[in-house]
């Protein structure tokens, strides 16, 4: 309980500081749609069937006047639906490094931590008092560290509030998956997203 409180406080603190700082230039928002897959890291880019997901996040810049590169932190939430296994909500924060090239192309790497709540999407039966009965689907908690590589394009490279389109390949691990059986499960998400600013002064 104590750990959870600290963890929640950290996340809320990060979000708050991010939003306050961002007020000067508007709040950066990234929205991405992604395909989630259980897959070994970097083994496959496109997988089927599609397990759709969506992620929404904001960012805090650690570099005051980013030119070619910036260090930043994200905080956000995501949801995905695995058609045969589960659906999951994750809150996460990532530390990122972005390098911009002159024509507006950027490359980024992000290292993240997350807390995932996974809900089975089939009827779940719990074993109690010697027999099975349908149980409430309250979900189970998971630790979800991640590593992402991204490339994107700023539509107006000279503007600090430019719209950005990006593709992100994210590798993440679900832990614990099934302790003593399959301890951790590797996943890949392939994101297609956009970054924009809300409340920015034109």
């Amino acid at each position: 309980m104590h750990t959870k409180t600290i963890y929640s406080s950290l996340l809320i603190g990060l979000l708050f500081s991010s939003l306050v700082y961002a007020q000067e230039k508007g709040i950066p928002i990234t929205v991405s749609a992604f395909n989630q897959a259980t897959s070994m890291p970097f083994s496959e880019l496109l997988t089927s069937p599609i397990h759709p997901g969506i992620a929404v996040a904001t960012e805090l810049n650690y570099s005051k006047q980013p030119k070619h590169s910036r260090l930043f932190q994200t905080i956000g939430a995501s949801y995905y639906y695995h058609r045969y296994l589960n659906q999951a909500v994750t809150v996460f924060s990532e530390m990122g490094y972005e390098y911009r090239f002159k024509p507006g192309i950027e490359l980024s790497a992000l290292l993240g931590v997350g807390y995932m709540r996974s809900f089975r999407n089939a009827t779940e039966y719990a074993f109690e008092n010697g027999s099975y009965s349908a149980t409430k689907n309250t979900g189970t908690g998971r630790f979800a560290p991640s590593f992402s590589l991204e490339t994107g394009y700023y539509l107006h490279p000279k503007s600090i509030t430019s719209l950005k389109l990006f593709v992100r390949y994210q590798v993440w691990v679900e832990y614990p998956f099934s302790l003593g059986f399959i301890d951790l499960m590797p996943h890949n998400n392939l994101h297609l997203g956009v970054k924009f600013f809300i409340g920015a002064n034109k």
Partner: peptide, 8 residues
């Protein structure tokens, strides 16, 4: 699947 006596 999750080693918790909850089955699907």
């Amino acid at each position: 699947l999750y080693s918790n006596f909850k089955i699907t």
